[in-house]
């Protein structure tokens, strides 16, 4: 297991490297310097700024400097909010974004898995069709449509919940979390249903029935774990989906998270902020995928075994 986790970690490093390199050159090929924009700066000031941010050094030098910077998780100064570093902005937004994202992920798992399993047990019966059609609706309606509709219903018409604004309180979190979770619930339900049906058809489930175990025991002791493996694999993409979703959700509900900084940065052409967020998200996703792989290996004895074989 330790062996396996180290090997997986080693394979994550090139990906990180690719990500950072990609980010660096994207910024470099961006037309126009970071400081030309609405305010035209006098040439000497611009030269000063360039020197301050090492823009006057040769490219390979800059690249190495950038790498070293990222390794220390230093995303540099914001090119738009001149008094702020990107790290400051991220540190402000991160707790908010991660709270919402984490809650949404938990909610999606807690609802999606039982729904999917339920539908699988009623395969091709009306209940199954109903649930899966609703899930398809959930996948097809974008979150930037769902969010305004939820606001229209629960905030404007019913007046139960606030339409936007932020503080760490349940009433302000409900709608954003639901918006983030809805498509994931649908995906997880579909995945769980599909894999559960597959598992319930397998020979070892027939054996479990032949052993005289009651259906409930078969479901929980024999079928659930293999049926959940695809859900575990989905968690990586799901995390990426949440990060993307947070951009929309934070904007609609006017929540000061990383997502809204990101959009502001994009509209302001604040390259360092945008890149900082992209790299941070990239790192998070890579780490998350790594974690997911470990969980997977821990659940599936065959992967552990292959590793022992290879390691021995």
């Amino acid at each position: 297991m330790l062996n396996y986790s180290l090997k997986r970690l080693a394979s994550a490093i090139p990906t990180l490297f690719l990500l950072i390199t990609f980010a660096f050159f994207l910024i470099r090929i961006a037309p126009g310097g970071p400081f030309d924009g609405e305010r035209a700066l006098p040439p000497d000031i611009e030269a000063n700024l360039a020197a301050k941010y090492h823009l006057d050094e040769p490219l390979p030098m800059q690249y190495l400097r950038y790498l070293w910077q990222i390794v220390r998780l230093d995303f540099g100064p914001s090119f738009h909010y001149l008094d702020w570093t990107v790290n400051d902005l991220i540190a402000q937004g991160a707790p908010v974004s991660f709270t919402l994202g984490g809650l949404a992920l938990l909610l999606a798992l807690a609802i999606g898995i039982p729904i999917g399993a339920w539908a699988a047990l009623r395969q091709n019966r009306p209940g199954d069709y109903a649930v899966m059609s609703i899930a398809m609706v959930g996948i097809s309606i974008p979150n930037f449509v769902v969010a305004p509709l939820l606001i229209l219903l629960f905030a404007i018409s019913l007046g139960w919940l606030p339409a936007g604004g932020w503080e760490f309180s349940p009433s302000r979190m409900v709608l954003p979390v639901i918006t983030l979770a809805l498509p994931m619930i649908a995906y997880i339900a579909r995945i769980t249903r599909g894999s559960m049906i597959e598992v319930l058809r397998s020979s070892f489930i027939r054996t479990a029935r032949a052993k005289g175990l009651p259906e409930k025991e078969i479901l929980f002791n024999h079928a659930l774990k293999p049926a959940l493996l695809p859900v575990i694999s989905y968690l990586g993409p799901a995390a990426a989906g949440i990060l993307t979703g947070s951009v929309v959700v934070e904007r609609i509900f006017t929540i000061p998270g990383i997502g809204s900084y990101f959009v502001q940065g994009a509209l302001n052409r604040d390259y360092t902020l945008v890149m900082g967020v992209v790299i941070l998200y990239g790192i998070l996703i890579i780490l998350f995928n790594y974690l997911v792989d470990l969980i997977y290996a821990w659940l599936d004895p065959r992967i552990r075994y292959d590793d022992q074989e290879a390691g021995a």
Binding site: T244, F262, A266
Partner: peptide, 23 residues
């Protein structure tokens, strides 16, 4: 294919945004 795997792990939606911003 390793390259593809590498890009897979990245937040690609954000790269689209970055491309839009830059170009």
């Amino acid at each position: 294919m390793r390259f593809v795997d590498g890009i897979y792990a990245m937040p690609f939606m954000f790269f689209v945004i970055v491309l839009m911003v830059i170009f």
